[in-house]
Design a protein around this nucleic acid. Structure first.
Lengths: 232, 232, 232, 232
DNA sequence: AATGAATGAGCGTTCATTCAT
DNA sequence: TATGAATGAACGCTCATTCAT
């Protein structure tokens, strides 16, 4: 690779991870140049995380991925922990923004809103970024309380629209029951990551899986009875 | 952890991971002593993986966790790759053995067999070992073709009983449809790991989640129609 | 050598290998301190190469020979390959500079120039540095294409003055013939390294050998005839 | 490389290094099987030395190159030093045997014998084995007194035929003068290794170099005068 | 805001050697 | 004879971090 390279050289798909995706807010009083450097760093770190995994996201590699000297990287992020937390914050926030953006058209009937939301989530799971980042987050959250809390926070936001729809469809259920149903639906979709995510063996079958999943979710909400399991 | 540590100091729960769990076959031409050393090594490696994650499973730490010199570790597993592959092989095989052991009593009606299998899986998910190892495997499989293939192989075995039951319950469906349904059920359960696995926020709610999940799965199999999605 | 050694402890003769000998160019954008460190490193590496051979020139031993931490050595020369290439470059360049400095006084008759040049080469062969380094280079060049090329490049420069004199003395010969004669003379002198170099058994006989060699070279150039070999 | 491999897999040219080449005498009282193992080991060691250099000739690599376990190798050669000394002894002896075999037909006139001997030497230099081994020996001899002595011993044997011819051709010279001439001729030829040995840049020009060299040698012997250097 | 220099720790790996089997 | 097991040291290298410039 020639020396002139200034930008991380990831695949096209990765190039679409823009600053907006990272939801990185400028620090108050910070100069524009520093802000730009921080953006560049987070982009590069994300790129490495996605393309090569958590281990590859070292200070040195991040620095060289954004054509920056190590000393300068540590100026912006004094420790690796700082960088990782900033990155996770940015990544998770970007997903939260995305979830909030999926405005649920109140004109649509609730079942259609449920279907539409699930479709969006399942589509997102197929993206390289999501397929790669979430398993890293899950693994990290097993050994890092901060990550665990932040990830669960994210999922609270992700379940909110589900909870709303379920409650609307089944006003007869208790809040706990609605919550459990929403959790099941959300967890169920997350589980697809491993099987039908980007470059996974069942990615091509995702359309059929979507159909099955949405069908199952709608039926579940419709037919859920307090008398826990159906008679055989 | 202080430096004097020479023996694996994991929690009681981890001590229950026995050799039997690892399905570690003896080697031809090797002495008993060597086999025992290899057992010890794999135990220690697994313990580190579960307790502290993949990064902590370094050759040095594994060696010191089983009070063995690094040189001897590399005698039994010349490269880290060798160790990891042996460990994954043992771990995955142990799960495969476990799956195969869940003999589906043919006296039971298929729906009960389905429910019973899902209960076992969802119970297993709550164990520390499973909660910790699988996210690591998922993260690894994103950047390591060998792990990906081996993990997917494991899931083929895990889906086999599901596929059998689904086919039995719905002889009218095509094999592809049955496969998709089984995949959905399996993936759906895997997704619970992040939310209701060991020490996860919804672990206490697992019984209710089980109920919801099994209800959903049975209804799905029962009611699945070729006319993809139900009318609103 | 005991462990406490922190400073290169080479013989006096080695201490005379100065930076000038190494022809080590400063680097753009670097501080003086860094340049000095790199000098120190190359000095120490050369010292080890001369005193104990190629195998002894390990990153650790070079670092400790110049009272520097290993981490800093790898900062200046990230890989051993980098260090070796820089050292060979410096060493070979220093010889090239030396060869080019042997200005052939055009006032002298060609035979005297030939004799003078050969005397200088044969004297140089007796130095510890030359006696020790060249066999290492020859051995390395058998298994390392870079070293091979660089060494042959050096010899091109070493043959240039010979080629010039031969061509001047025998304008009747073809360029190929002149080249072959120059090559023979050069190779012939190199061969002395093993027998009459520093501390070699025939080092004391070097004056007589010089006489014989120069006599042979001059006669060869003078009497070389297209009719290849003389009649018996 | 499949597991069945039992013999070092070097190039065809290397396969011609037979046990005879190594002149390895059976130990008195040794069983045939042990002798054969020692032969195999020395073959493998030589192959590694020639193909990959001195550094590659480690106990482990030698053992695996002859499909033998490390423990068995150390049974035959307890230390690396033992192996190296045995190998050098065998290699050097094999050259001595070769030199002694070049019987100088007394029917030939001395100059023809000189030419014939030099031709043989210069041809041998082009072989892979010789091109590769001798620079290693030269480098080793700079840091190992045993190797130095053994190599110089070898060259005494190599010079013997030259000394004989020179003495015969020039009975008027003192023994010292003859010795110096023989030394020059021998060293001169050795020097060709680096330039015209196996795969060296001037290997194709070896025939012309031979012509020049032999011409120079014969003239030197013929015309050498006590009055050291010729008048200009 | 950014670079150059340096440290100390840890990594995976290879190695020569010893010893029990 | 030959293999299996184990040790201790060294290797080249990457890393997070600190600090002077």
């Amino acid at each position: 690779m020639p020396t002139g390279c200034q930008v991380p050289d990831f695949e096209a798909d990765l190039r679409t991870i823009t600053v907006a995706d990272l939801a990185f807010p400028p620090r108050e009083g910070g100069y524009a140049k520093g802000h730009q450097s921080r953006e560049l760093i987070l982009q590069a770190a994300l790129g490495l995380l996605v393309e090569e995994g958590y281990r590859a996201m070292s200070m040195r590699r991040v620095a060289s991925a954004c054509a920056m000297k190590l000393g300068n990287l540590t100026y912006h992020f004094p420790t690796r922990e700082d960088l990782i937390q900033a990155l996770l914050e940015a990544v998770i926030s970007s997903y939260e923004i995305e979830f909030d953006r999926i405005t649920h058209d109140p004109a649509l009937p609730p079942e259609a809103r449920l279907a539409s939301y699930c479709e969006l989530i399942l589509e997102d799971i197929r993206s390289k970024k999501t397929t790669r980042i979430f398993p890293e987050l899950w693994a990290l959250s097993n050994h890092d309380a901060f990550v665990l809390e932040r990830v669960q926070e994210l999922y609270v936001r992700a379940r909110a629209p589900l909870l709303e729809v379920v409650t609307e469809m089944r006003p007869d259920l208790t809040p706990d029951q609605c919550e459990t149903i929403a959790l099941f639906i959300s967890a169920s979709m997350e589980g697809m990551t491993v099987f039908a995510g980007h470059e996974k063996p069942f990615e091509p079958a995702m359309p059929e899986i979507e159909t099955v999943a949405i069908r199952a979710f709608i039926d579940l909400v419709r037919n859920f009875a307090a008398a826990a399991r159906p008679a055989p």
